[in-house]
Write a protein that binds this DNA or RNA. Structure first.
Lengths: 376, 376
DNA sequence: CCGGTTTCTGAAAGCGGTTTCATTATATGC
DNA sequence: GCATATAATGAAACCGCTTTCAGAAACCGG
């Protein structure tokens, strides 16, 4: 008696039978893909409503030869910034016909696996790659079936991409510090190269922007002021290294008065470390981060906003656009099936979009009160 | 010439033709679902390898009547605590045959939509609901097709669930403060009830635990010490409210010496606010959070660890187990198709698992140096 | 009122797999 | 050595939907 009457899934046949028509007709009113007389349309629609019929996504996919699925390969949980980007992506697909499957890369093994297995037309209609620069194998895998691909937060000549200008952002951060009178500015960042090919390069580019800004201001670049955490790899707790760097810097005989961190997450570590040794931020030490993750606001951290969420949104939208262009193109093909080989020609028209980077002023930076030789 | 030769997807027919066998045979070696002679098996396998054949997931799904997909309905997957849980869930399914589709709820509309549309056997084989207590409609929707369901971080008598004991956790937090000599302990939390039915109740339960702990220690409950942010709703920036609460509390004529926040995120706001008015944590104010998100470690925040990730893992595993039980059961049915109605009887055997809550001692709490009437 | 369109509809053939059923080849038993 | 169980395989049906193809019905000009 406690048997919850399990509802059966109604199929298109049930509807057809009930309406006294062929399944083809039902299909036609579902997709209004061909003229159906008003009278039968009404009958069918009633049957659909009464039976509460929803076509099986899978059958549909199989029949249409589309998957209505977007694959997103992303080093998902490793850093807050990825989550923000993902949020932008998810938001776009929520309102579309596409399902989004997130493939979370947390190891080199997975990375290779996903790049090889996922970009197949029977798995997805398009691929978004976040924060990973495809290597040669990846490129092959991605191109094999000519699926539309968009890179978010990375760049490759052969694929659409949405990225930010890290050099510019970093320069803005450092310029801000310079304008505040700082000239002893240190850099703390992640590794410059990395097996997984992601996040790494951004640190490198930010370092480059840092150097550039110094040079423009005629401040000598000092090797000791650059701390790069080569263990900032997957899943590692970067906190300790960053703290160690900070302590080391601040205890040196020429401590910096400001630190530019390559990410907000690292900036937080810097602030923690500074406080732990009794230094006040920003009075004793100015700190600038990068990313403007949600956290930054709560920490009152001055940082560089790189429109994380927007980048995800733009990437997703770009993919959607590509998808719809392709589908109209394939319709054209039907009428004139001649120019097969021309399709690929728009490989030329690869789109590379830049997302703006802006300084967000908060309370972690202040004028330099540099005492040239601090008493220790 | 720049035409990247787009590979064609090879089908089971291609393989069959190449191997000179019927598709049925290929299918059999793929799933070894029936005896195949070693010789033909080898031939087929070779063909598979040579053609690099991977069966189409969709065709398979359709044919098997399974989707090999798990739906995960989760609010704001960007909130750190949800991300942690999701991380646990994702980890489990990565190693399974199932794809995971995440449905991100950010509005009441979406919530209703997802609960109505997603739990259908043609969309997924099972559902994980995170941090949302199903209402009556939801329950109907979830039960309609008798899909296996697991709730993570919520509770309902009719569904499996993984949850934590918020009262207990809160009590541990408050007891810790009491043991440190505090007796002016304030509570800052999110709303106690909410249209979306999630997150709210956890604040309420933590408040309950707070009250209980006070009572046990014979400390009078004080209404002014309870600050509940009813705007901690969708997308709102809770930071400001929390800060306002903190300032208000600390500027009152009987400021607390300790604050227990219902989440780490809010605890961070408290710490920020305290610092902004020149108070030191923990010297002038002790702060305890809840959740033990990654952040907490970096903030040296004393908090309650509620095994966020573990809860996701357990939930996912439980669903997987249910799934495999169901599939073996349905096999049994094949042989003796009598006891259809008995299957539902194990609705009795709903599993409710609790995940441990533990105090994590860090540096945001200290002994109370209460000056009974602080000079202001 | 008739040939020729146009509009509407049903039967049937896919989509790419799995599975049943029937058939043939091979073993086994007596 | 023959009846019979068993193993191995192919042909065909099926999963639920879409789409082609072809036929029926309605429409139209002359």
């Amino acid at each position: 008696m406690k048997n919850t009457a399990t509802a059966q899934i109604t199929t298109i046949h049930d509807v057809a039978k009930r309406a006294g028509v062929a399944t083809a007709t039902v299909s036609r009113v579902l997709n209004n893909t061909a003229p159906v007389s008003d009278s039968t349309r009404k009958i069918v629609q009633t049957a659909i409503d009464e039976l509460n019929f929803v076509p099986s996504p899978n059958a549909r996919k199989l029949s249409w030869g589309k998957t209505f699925t977007i694959a997103c390969i992303v080093p998902f949980f490793t850093r807050p910034s990825f989550v923000e980007r993902l949020r932008g992506i998810v938001g776009v697909f929520e309102d579309s016909d596409y399902d989004l499957i997130v493939y979370n890369v947390e190891s080199a093994r997975r990375r290779a696996q996903y790049f090889n297995e996922v970009p197949r037309p029977d798995r997805c209609d398009g691929v978004i790659v976040v924060s990973m620069t495809p290597n040669d194998n990846d490129v092959n895998a991605l191109k094999r079936f000519n699926l539309p691909v968009v890179l978010v937060d990375s760049h490759h000549p052969q694929f659409h991409s949405i990225s930010e200008n890290s050099e510019e952002g970093a320069a803005k951060a450092v310029n801000h510090l310079i304008e505040l009178g700082h000239n002893k500015i240190a850099f703390i960042g992640g590794p410059l190269k990395d097996t997984l090919n992601f996040e790494a390069t951004s640190s490198a580019r930010r370092l480059k922007g840092y150097k550039q800004a110094l040079q423009n201001a005629n401040i000598a670049f000092k090797d000791d002021y650059v701390c790069v955490d080569n263990n900032f790899a997957i899943g590692s707790k970067n906190g300790n290294t960053v703290k160690a760097f900070t302590l080391q810097l601040m205890r040196s005989n020429r401590p910096p008065t400001a630190i530019f961190a390559a990410s907000d997450f690292q900036a937080m570590g810097v602030m923690q470390a500074a406080r732990s040794m009794g230094l006040r931020v920003p009075e004793d030490l100015s700190v600038v981060g990068y990313d403007d993750i949600e956290l930054a606001e709560h920490l009152s951290l001055t940082t560089i906003n790189q429109s994380l969420r927007l980048s995800g949104e733009r990437g997703a939208t770009l993919l959607l656009e590509t998808l719809s262009i392709l589908s109209t193109e394939s319709k054209k093909e039907n009428s004139s099936l001649s120019h097969q080989s021309f399709i690929d020609d728009d490989a030329e028209k690869v789109i590379h979009e830049k997302v703006p980077v802006d300084l967000v002023l908060r309370a972690s930076t202040a004028h330099s009160l540099d005492r040239q030789h601090p008493v220790i």
